[in-house]
Design a protein around this nucleic acid. Structure first.
Length: 262
DNA sequence: CTCTATGTTTAATT
DNA sequence: GAATTAAACATAGA
């Protein structure tokens, strides 16, 4: 469920379900999900509060309450938010459950996460994990004016740097892999070796990959990737067999022919 | 049983 | 110090 497009879809859902609603009860069923905040704090602080709006920065969600408290949500690898009828049975892997009421109608908004890498944090102010994020790709982060200097400043493989949430917030393994292929850039190239033309191409490719995924989500279409997860298959451009390497502990699939070293 | 997984943090090593 | 790498977290599915 992660990466920016999924989180943005989750934000839209939560905004629709929660904005203007009042929280009746807040139960964290799995303390590990709220590591950093006690379950009692959720149960005590949230009931009776109205939700103002739900915002997103990179892969983090922020549910803002009318009195200034806020709930931060990271989906980890397998987290998702769903809405249920008030009497519905608990779904498998449910980790937290919020009963809400709006215009006399009650419902349940539930956080589900099989692997439990996601997090819920209740705070009165913005948390460091949120404040330290780089710009969002959909809010200026892809401008060459930001991307150029940010990439020149680091001396790691471009693939690693793209996934660094303090450089760009929201780019994960899939988007980085796909965009580098689109832009014909070797994922192992040092981020400080890219020229202006490559920076621009990379910005455009990230935007295209992002728009494509977001579009697929909105239409309910499954994702179709060009290279991600396609090791051994022919490159869609030049038919060379795609190869897989591991960078910073993550798989990168790329075409050694058209993403050649410069 | 083995391998991999859309993420992030922390410990260990170079 | 910096940078890189491995391990850890917990679970599912091929």
């Amino acid at each position: 469920m992660p990466e920016l497009p999924d989180v943005e879809m989750a934000r839209r859902d939560l905004q629709r379900w929660l904005a203007g609603a009042e929280i009746r009860s807040a139960r964290v069923l799995d303390a590990y999900i709220a590591r950093g905040t006690s379950r009692a704090a959720f149960a005590r602080t949230l009931p009776g509060q109205a939700v103002q709006k739900v915002t997103r920065r990179g892969k983090w969600l922020r549910i803002e309450l009318r009195d200034g408290a806020r709930v931060f949500s990271h989906l980890g690898m397998t987290g998702s938010w769903i809405r249920l009828d008030a009497e519905a049975a608990a779904p498998r892997w449910e980790r937290a459950r919020f009963e809400i009421e709006r215009r006399g109608r009650s419902a349940v908004v539930s956080y589900v996460d099989s692997r439990r890498f996601g997090r819920l944090v209740l705070a009165q102010d913005d948390i460091a994990e949120w404040s330290e994020l780089g710009p969002d790709p959909l809010a200026g982060g892809l401008e060459p004016a930001h991307l150029g200097p940010a990439l020149a400043r680091r001396r790691r493989a471009i693939k690693d740097v793209l996934m660094d949430q303090t450089v760009l917030a929201g780019i994960g393994n899939i988007l980085a892999t796909e965009a580098l292929w689109m832009a014909r850039i070797d994922p192992r190239a040092g981020s400080d070796t890219l020229g202006p033309a490559h920076i621009r191409a990379l910005g455009r490719s990230l935007r295209a990959a992002l728009d494509q995924e977001l579009g697929d989500r909105m239409r309910g279409n499954p994702d179709v990737f060009s290279v991600y997860g396609r090791e051994g298959e022919p490159c869609p451009r030049c038919k060379t067999a795609l190869v897989r390497i591991v960078q910073a502990g993550r798989s990168t699939t790329f075409c050694s022919q058209c993403q050649g070293r410069r």
